[in-house]
Design a protein around this nucleic acid. Structure first.
Lengths: 219, 219
DNA sequence: AAATCAAAAACTGCATGCAAAATCGCGAGG
DNA sequence: CCTCGCGATTTTGCATGCAGTTTTTGATTT
């Protein structure tokens, strides 16, 4: 079990329902019927209500007083806003990392980048996606600011479903790696402005790829 | 009534208890006894529990399973992190504002700044604090990014109790106004990098003032 | 007098029940 | 045929009750 059963039912439910939403099992707009969920998870309505309220605070569900809570709908406009916000947060973390990473952290980032080079060579998309998470997580952590890092992690988690597709674009891996190279170099050499710019550029390109995908799909 | 009684008890309680915490009525570390709060607000424990869970998601209270929730303690280290995070968020909003404010929004920011000049002249501290909120709110809104704006607002709200004191430092008003001048100019003229730098500088100085105050108090 | 441990009190987590609001369905009217 | 309104059903919001855990208290021992 990934989730320890030491915590309360409410916490387990919040995690479970949250995963269901993020993985698409519960589609946006779905009504969250308390009674139904209670029955489904074999608990009473009370913990379900509390879990829903927790999820509402994270933005995953929308609370409408006296009416069913629903899985939050994400309009293309909101998605755009979220991508921009995440880009800015990542860029900020990169900037802070350039300024305040310890030598060990810089070394780790460099190592991770080199490891990813091998994955690009072997065209291991799944491995690259996984390693990419770590790469970015190292930069969050390097900012030495848990609040900004948490915000970035939360947004990334939220956007993940929309990002998966884009690594399959042909030639995406080598391009990502090249962008990472610039980001990593800037951070390791302590060039805050360059780190910020490189990360912003990187994330913007990812976003553009995504927007392109949806535009194609929508058209 | 400031809070409309259209919403649910839970929402009202969350707002009420949240205000009590932010205003210092409920000091950090205080145990949030469900039974006691229920009695105090003349409701049952259920809405109290849900309100507490909401507040936990905002970071105002800390949830400890099977034990009382407590008002979150803020260590100086956390405070420092929060100040940095807020500074970065504000700077980012300023940058985005410089890039994407509409002409009308730029005009409004300019007007607000000029209005604050008069308050500095008359040394109206309370008025300046109020107007200062608006000034910064205009910049949040000008970023055209509700997510970043919400994050900034939330952090500002959270830090507000620690910020109040610092406007009373002698000569703070004119200095703030001068810094605002540079921020405003950069945004209005569309200089993103300058807006970012000016805002970061502004907020850092505020933070330094605060750190100075606490250091004095602690010593 | 301080420390230890056990019993009692208090409190949280969860289930259940009830009243009010919202939704749905059906029939009347245009 | 469509729209509107009214009653029935569903569903939320909140209160209350019970079981298990934590905390407190008081007695006992060193």
């Amino acid at each position: 079990m990934t989730s320890s059963n030491k915590q309360t039912q409410t916490d387990k439910l919040a995690a479970e329902i949250g995963d269901a939403i993020l993985s698409g099992v519960l589609a946006p707009g779905t009504r969250l019927d308390e009674h139904g969920l209670a029955e489904q998870y074999a608990v009473s309505r009370t913990p379900v209500r509390e879990a829903i309220r927790s999820l509402a605070a994270t933005g995953l569900v929308e609370l409408r007083p006296r009416r069913s809570a629903v899985v939050a709908e994400i309009t293309p406009a909101q998605l755009e806003v979220m991508f921009v916000a995440m880009g800015e947060l990542e860029a900020t973390c990169a900037r802070l990392s350039a300024m305040s990473m310890t030598p060990i952290e810089r070394r780790r980032l460099q190592n991770q980048h080199e490891r990813m080079g091998a994955l690009v060579e072997s065209d291991d998309v799944a491995g690259f996606i996984e390693a990419n998470l770590t790469f970015h997580a190292l930069i969050y952590a390097g900012s030495h600011n848990g609040i900004l890092a948490d915000m970035a992690v939360g947004l990334r988690r939220r956007l993940d479903p929309y990002r998966r597709a884009q690594f399959r674009s042909p030639g995406r891996l080598p391009r990502s790696q090249a962008e990472h190279e610039r980001i990593m170099q800037a951070i390791v050499s302590g060039d805050a402005a360059a780190a910020h710019a490189a990360m912003l550029n990187h994330v913007s390109l990812v976003e553009d790829t995504f927007i392109g995908l949806t535009a194609t799909r929508a058209a």
